[in-house]
Nucleic acid binder design. Structure first.
Lengths: 237, 237, 237, 237
DNA sequence: TATGAATGAGAATTCATTCAT
DNA sequence: GATGAATGAATTCTCATTCAT
């Protein structure tokens, strides 16, 4: 679960000041871009937020595009690192799956900037991310982890055959991401506060049911349900 | 004095030119905003795309914000109208559910601008949409339709109890929306072309399996599968 | 005291509608220009205020400049006509002078638009007014009236010699005009509400004292003049 | 981050370049605004006149309004500073009064931009000036100076009682301000060149006579007052 | 490493005016 | 007389970026 360094180092060991300034800029940029999007984000404001001179941003990161990419990389690095700390291999397959779903949901909840940044980047058709040299390798462990989990479940006869780990991960992410990222429009069109604590719990239950009922072989589903249901409101036979 | 309100007047019927100009602006704005986002969209380019004088945009729509809202409303109106054409009430519950999933997926595929616009609007925390006076009422029929469908399925013992129509709709939308809207970053991080025809078909199957296996009572799932599988490559018993 | 027609008539007698529209435009333009100045005044708003189509303004008045001139002329006509209704010739000279001062003050108070329009026009160096063909002749009666009044007073030994009617009129106007037109800045810099009822009465008394004490014969004024004349070019002993 | 406040900073002494640029902008803005008024003044032209990049104007002053206020403040500061250099306390009361009148007249003559700027600001109802934090305190010395002068004159039995220094100052300013600021329209309506050297001299004499004859004790003034005073509150013998 | 000053290109928006009927 | 639609040229203001030190 060691955090991946947000940017490559040069030969000479950088001073503490350098690190502090760079980190301040990166944090400020993350806030700014997630608040206003890429096009709406202002370099001026980032400098102000970071408490550094605007020129320094260019000195360290080159330009706005590159700064955004650095923010993206560091954000991806954070979530992937956190996932590696889940130790899914130590849990029963179904429990591991639940844990991944719950983790993902909570991570999205705790990191709205991640959702926002991804939206921005997709609005730009991944213009920046596709220039990244590090991003691909950052994700193989995730796929590997899921693949192993699915194989274990299949071997135990618990998980169905033919589940693609990437497809499954995208679904797990989808169900939470869309709900949270599009929360604003959804709340307006449905006239409901989707951010209310009850609504959030309900959503996690719903997501978990969806994914688990899909991944597991059908007949024994009920048996796999935990005795203490997380959500007491939904009584099940 | 100037006709800023996007809604049509009752007194004098607007000339054909008016309609044509407004429609051209709306279409061009839709293209522009979905291509570049709201902050990145340029009024100049919209005028150019629409082949009208820039001033006319302000004459008809007031300002960039209001124009974007008009685009959003018209886009929502389109998808909601198309949904009403599905006539889910004429189909068996499970078939109706499949049809809705398929329709939603295909609509998203055919209308990338819808995804993009929603992303943009959420980046702005629904700043524009929350000013809309028409958007709420536009969505009650959708919820109504789903509610009716779920009730029918439950009455026939096919659908499980306690499924919230809004929750279900959000999930149906999620699975396709996230996949397509975030297609660019997902393709980069997983190193896969998620837009390949095969991948798209596979995704629809996966989504359908997920939702149907969740919504239906467990034991009879296999029996409900249509004889002619949509996707011949995925062999099922 | 007959009001002077604001604009010349053409051969054919204009319809009532024409008159009404023109008058509405003129009134609206007067309000608009006095509120925002010439450069700040908007043709759009004038049309809106007048409840007529913008095009009509051009139809009747040609352009913004000419419209402003028409407003100016009609405003001057109003005050000059009102002055002719004072019948100063029926009063004792000093009383007539007081009456003129009081009238001028009250007229300015009641017609802030007059002050504002003149300020605007002077900001433009009388660009519009100097094109007027009617304005000169509108003012000879005023000068004539004052000239007669001063002559009467002199003949009775009440008024001093050598008072120039134009100079005197400008002073009478000055004392009220500046106070009222510059009321906003004066109130700010002196931290006093110059528009308070008491302040207004006090001002009129002050103005009247100033002008009357100047115009009337006074025994000691000459004695107070310094030995060295103010104007060195005027011959000294 | 950008130095929008016009006041000088204390921390780091601004470089000469900063001072030069700001002064150039201020001077150019003064010229532009006094020539065209506020609404008619163009930021583009100000930049051109000042020989600086347009962006710099916003960098230093924030926006057009704030720039105009800075011009106003600096203009007021100039005249008030010049007044303090008159040393009225070293002169006999009447002579001091004459000197103030003459100074004011000549200052207005030499600084048409002052008149023009005040007119503009009043057209806007002192919208900008009322935001100023410095303007009030700039004017107490003037009132103080006049108050002292009037007291000295009264003590010597030369000046009449009950003269309000603010009222008197407004009158002194009025007589010159109106004549010069409205010179353009007055010249047109009276068909006279009020700017001719002779006319200017004559005006100063006239103004001086008016004010001095009012301020000094005069034996016959009361006798000329009508029996029915307009203002019953001000009891007169 | 750090920064205050400066900028060219372009952003949304406005305005008086005219077209076509 | 009257009007809704349309426009070219400005106008204020913004933005990422660079200069000079």
């Amino acid at each position: 679960m060691e955090p991946i360094a947000p940017a490559s180092r040069t030969a000479a060991p950088p001073s503490r000041d350098t690190d502090r300034s760079k980190a301040a800029i990166l944090g400020a940029a993350c806030d700014e871009f997630s608040e206003y999007g890429f096009a709406g984000g202002r370099v001026d404001r980032i400098a102000e937020r970071a408490g550094v001179n605007k020129r320094l941003i260019y000195y360290y990161f080159g330009n706005k595009d590159a700064l955004f990419l650095a923010v993206l990389e560091s954000t991806y690095a954070d979530i992937r690192a956190a996932e590696q700390g889940l130790h899914l291999d130590l849990l029963e397959p179904v429990e591991a799956l639940r844990r991944l779903i719950t983790f993902t949901w909570r991570y999205f909840l705790a990191h709205p900037e991640f959702l926002s940044l991804l939206n921005s980047e997709n609005l730009m058709r991944a213009r920046n991310l596709s220039k990244s040299l590090r991003i691909r390798e950052m994700h193989s462990p995730l796929v590997q982890m899921l693949d192993t989990l699915l194989a274990r479940g299949r071997a135990q006869g618990i998980f169905r055959d033919g589940v693609d780990p990437v497809q499954l991960y995208i679904s797990i992410a989808s169900l939470g991401f869309f709900y949270l990222a599009n929360n604003h429009t959804l709340s307006v069109i449905f006239g409901r506060d989707l951010r209310a604590p009850d609504a959030l719990e309900e959503r996690l239950d719903h997501m978990t049911d969806l994914v688990v009922s899909y991944a597991t072989n059908r007949l024994d589903l009920a048996a796999l349900r935990p005795v203490t249901a997380r959500n007491p409101r939904a009584e099940r036979p």
